[in-house]
């Protein structure tokens, strides 16, 4: 099993190379083909006015923006292969350092938000399924629907109004300590929980109708054991998959929450970079986000056999192959 798993992980890591190449081409093309000139935008930021055309031309030269796009892509790719993602036009920082510097701030939000979401979603979704069509179920579904329907930024502002403006027990925005984390984590966590509640409920309902659950009950297995060991455990696979996907999304997609709560995370940096056509940061981020996403999925695939004994008995060739 261990050897199989190692081979599987190695093979999946190898698959990442062509995917990375595709992502890098996409990132480079999207960034460079968007209308707008990074040199011009940098100078507008510097003076607050339309810049001198000669100054723009000089800066383009300094930034190496005048060569053919294919040549620039090739040069960038070679640098990436050596671990150099380039230098941010906006801040002058190495992109790798910039992403690494902002990553902890984003992780500080994403991890507890996901933890909170799972903490809310699994018991709530499971309870809703077990007590189907009861008040608990209707309430859980309503909460999930509302949570999924309200945009994250509205939730953020409402939480600020309640906890910071009216009750004055938490700060509005900033990053000077744990108290500043509460509202953005809640904002992100509520949205994530809403999606997970619905999925947990749906999976639990499906699993509760399976033959092996009925068999367990017929054998006199206790209700608690049936629910936790047989039903919930099997219902969790898709929830874990979705959680991993949402985690990858949280790392890159917390931009709005980071802006509202004035947190210097990756998402906000990337939005700023897109606005200013900071190509190296955009490209570096897409590559980074793609990698995180792929690794998160790999992690989930590796986790499956631990949760589902049926997967241990098959040759691990990927979740699709194993489950079939």
């Amino acid at each position: 099993m261990t050897n199989q798993l190692t081979r599987y992980i190695a093979r999946r890591l190898l698959y990442l190379v062509p995917v990375w190449l595709g992502v890098s081409l996409l990132a480079f093309s999207l960034a460079n083909l968007a209308p707008g000139d990074p040199a011009e935008l940098m100078l507008v930021r510097q003076t607050g006015q339309a810049p001198d055309a000669a100054a723009v031309a000089r800066l383009r030269e300094e930034l190496g923006l005048n060569g053919p796009i294919a040549l620039r892509y090739g040069r960038w790719l070679v640098n990436v292969a050596t671990g150099d993602l380039g230098t941010s036009y906006r801040t002058g920082e190495p992109v790798l350092g910039l992403l690494a510097g902002r990553f902890p701030s984003t992780l500080q939000l994403a991890l507890p938000a996901l933890f909170l979401a799972v903490l809310i979603a699994i018991p709530l979704g499971a309870a809703a399924a077990v007590r189907r069509d009861s008040l608990t179920d209707h309430s859980a579904r309503l909460v999930a629907l509302v949570g999924a329907s309200i945009p994250g930024f509205v939730v953020g502002y409402l939480l600020i109004l309640l906890f910071a403006v009216t009750l004055r027990i938490l700060p509005v925005a900033g990053s000077d300590g744990w108290r500043y984390l509460v509202l953005p984590v809640l904002t992100l966590g509520v949205g994530e929980a809403a999606a997970l509640v619905r999925l947990t409920r749906a999976n639990m309902l499906e699993v509760l109708g399976e033959d092996y659950v009925r068999t367990a009950r017929a054998k006199g297995v206790g209700n608690r054991t049936v629910l936790v060991r047989h039903a919930l455990r099997n219902a969790l696979n898709p929830v874990i998959t979705l959680s991993a996907v949402r985690f990858g999304r949280l790392l890159g997609g917390a931009a709005i929450v980071e802006t509202i709560f004035a947190r210097p995370g990756i998402g906000k940096s990337v939005v700023d970079a897109i606005q200013d056509r900071d190509y190296p940061v955009i490209q570096g981020f897409v590559l980074f986000a793609g990698t995180v996403f792929l690794l998160a999925n790999l992690f989930v695939d590796v986790l499956y056999p631990l949760l589902d004994p049926r997967l241990r008995l098959t040759d691990v060739r990927g979740p699709g192959a194993a489950a079939s």
């Binding site: 910071a164 709560f261 004035a262």
Partner: peptide, 17 residues
């Protein structure tokens, strides 16, 4: 204190921050 979002700035004022 830097607040990029104008709504957050206004709320920071209302909250006494």
């Amino acid at each position: 204190r830097f607040y990029q979002d104008e709504n957050t700035r206004a709320l920071a004022l209302r909250s006494g921050q």
